[in-house]
């Protein structure tokens, strides 16, 4: 079980991710500097949160062209699994590995708080240990997390089961008050057409130990690593 965590100048959730995958979930983890060109044969590529390249121009716009990203494109083309959280999600959208874009939060504030997300019915192999309707409490920390795509794309994502999770209340209902950043259709996480590329704004790697507030993030990451049963 090998996870490659990508490191960009400005990444700041990489240590949390490495800790979650290595110390808590027992995977072999390699941190891969963005200028490297060897992904080290991973079962999962994880793109962590932070502010790669200072979020200059647009979040994720510059990171997309780092040398390692050519390898990530090729890895995805071979059927590899990629998960991006927060800035990682923004990078995956900029790379067009995921549709849509992340805009400035509707309340124009940087939001750092626990939110609830509801797992949606989906076909992604990465969420198969979770049940549709299941509610997880996971923190967000972002200024640009408002998910945007045109109506046709949103309809397609919903129709194809590519919406993996939505912001919701503690009970799992959808309403404006539970959608912190104004994401269209309350979307918090999506996958690509074959379910192998997964992006989400909340940070599961920050909630992997009870001492740190919750283990709901661990439930999610454990499901993602469930793909490894398949590939090994």
């Amino acid at each position: 079980m090998r996870v490659s965590v990508l490191l960009f100048p400005g990444s700041n959730c990489d240590r949390d991710a490495i800790h979650a995958f290595e110390a808590v979930l027992g995977a072999e983890v390699n941190g891969i500097w963005h200028k490297e060109t060897d992904l080290k044969n991973p079962d999962l590529v994880f793109i962590p949160g932070g502010f790669s390249f200072g979020d200059y121009l647009r979040s994720g716009a510059i990171a997309r062209f780092s040398p390692i990203m050519e390898q990530v494109q090729a890895y995805v083309a071979r059927g590899g699994y990629v998960m991006g959280v927060c800035n990682g999600f923004q990078i995956l959208c900029e790379m067009q590995l995921l549709p849509g874009a992340l805009l400035t939060n509707k309340p124009i504030k940087f939001l750092c708080q626990d939110v609830f997300v509801r797992v949606e019915p989906n076909q992604s192999p990465m969420l198969q240990k979770l049940t549709p309707g299941q509610v997880l409490r996971i923190p967000i920390a972002h200024g640009m997390g408002q998910y945007f795509a045109d109506e046709a794309t949103l309809d397609r994502l919903e129709g194809e089961g590519q919406v993996l999770m939505r912001y919701c209340s503690a009970e799992g209902s959808l309403d404006e008050a539970s959608n912190p950043n104004g994401s269209l259709r309350s979307i918090a996480g999506i996958c690509n057409a074959d379910g192998r590329v997964f992006g989400m704004m909340p940070h599961p790697e920050r909630h992997v130990e009870a001492e740190l507030g919750s283990e709901d993030g661990l439930i999610l990451l454990d499901s993602v690593l469930g793909i490894l049963d398949r590939v090994n």
């Binding site: 805009l103 400035t104 124009i108 408002q146 945007f148 045109d150 104004g182």
Partner: peptide, 10 residues
């Protein structure tokens, strides 16, 4: 057009 601009709104 159609993309929400919270900065402009503020």
């Amino acid at each position: 057009n159609g993309v929400l601009d919270p900065q402009g709104k503020t």
